[in-house]
Simulated assay, not measured.
Amino acid sequence: MSVTHVGGPTVLIELAGWRILTDPTFDPPGRTYEFGLGTRSTKTTGPAVAPDEVGPVDLILLSHDHHADNLDDHGRSLLPSAGTVLTTVPGARRLRAPNTRGLRPGQATTASAVGRPDLHVLATPCRHGPPLSRPVAGTVIGFAVSLAGSPRTAVWMTGDTVLHRPLRRAARHLDVDVLLLHLGAVRFPLTGPLRYSMNSTDAAGLLAATRPRVVVPVHYEGWSHFSEAEERARENLHADRLPAGTTVTWLERGRAAALALHGP
């Protein structure tokens, strides 16, 4: 598997001939985006790869369409050219595109292409904020992707979520090679100490539940609404604090990294 961190939650994954893009965000920095009910965030870092440099995309995994730090204007322009876009059921209704499928947590679908192994994609639960926040924060999902015939999850993208019981349950049932871990501890001045994504302390609890082989932190930089510094996250996810057999790979933005998958 090859992974390239474009920036924020956006990662290009090359797996068994498939080219998979997560949460496309390609707008330049400097703009402030509204997130609803008076919350907002400014993009502080641009993408390390331009949209026209991405190349063909077979599958887009879109955790949610309604926040610009997960789908912005330039990212939205890539959706029609992708083979398939998987997202939430409300997101699919809003996008209204023939190549888009909506999934609920626990639902699965299969992506097929000539000359490549099928991909099994399972939607995993997310809660993008504290209890009872879903009517405000909206519906979000993660994605567990497996190659046909393998009992292991090749890559699990958590999506924007806090650590909560359904996520822990899902983690215990996944045998994960590569975990794309959305971090950042999102906060807004308007809502004070409330968090809308995991910090690294919560992430450590998730790793204890699923024990992935490789952890790739993403979505912790480039926006003003992230409240946890990268240095703090690196400290909490240091090797001596991880489950046995788990390593963390901090990607250099814009540079492809090869990650080995374990055999079946």
Score class of each variant (00 low, 15 high):
N99Y: 08
L163W: 08
D175P: 12
P125F: 00
R195E: 14
R94K: 15
P98R: 14
G184H: 02
L207Y: 09
D160I: 09
H173R: 15
A171S: 07
T158Q: 02
D175E: 13
D175S: 13
F143E: 07
P135S: 07
R169P: 10
V176K: 01
V140M: 10
I141R: 04
L190V: 14
G142R: 00
M198A: 06
A171E: 04
G205C: 10
F143K: 00
R213G: 00
R134I: 09
T210Y: 03
T161V: 07
P105S: 01
L181Y: 05
A209M: 05
V145K: 00
V162C: 10
T109M: 08
L179S: 06
P212R: 02
H182N: 09
S112V: 05
R195D: 06
A123M: 07
R104L: 07
G159H: 09
L167Q: 07
A108P: 04
A108W: 08
V176D: 08
H182L: 03
Q107C: 07
P166H: 02
L167P: 00
D177P: 13
L167M: 13
T158R: 00
T201I: 13
S146H: 06
R168L: 15
L179M: 14
T210M: 11
L132K: 14
L174F: 04
S200C: 04
V178F: 11
P125M: 04
A154C: 11
T139R: 05
T158P: 00
R116V: 05
A148W: 15
G192W: 10
T139H: 14
H128Y: 15
D118P: 04
G106P: 07
L132D: 15
V186T: 14
P135F: 10
L132W: 15
W156Y: 11
N99W: 07
V121K: 02
A111C: 09
L183Q: 09
V114T: 12
D202K: 06
R172E: 14
T110F: 12
T158F: 01
T201V: 14
R116A: 08
L167R: 03
T191K: 10
V186H: 03
T158H: 01
L194F: 12
V186K: 02
S197R: 07
S146I: 00
A97N: 14
R116M: 12
A123N: 08
M157S: 13
M198G: 02
Y196R: 02
P212G: 08
L95W: 05
R116E: 12
A203E: 03
I141G: 03
A208V: 10
R134P: 05
L194Y: 09
G159W: 05
T210D: 09
R94W: 11
R101Y: 11
P212H: 09
V145F: 10
G115Q: 12
A113G: 08
A148N: 12
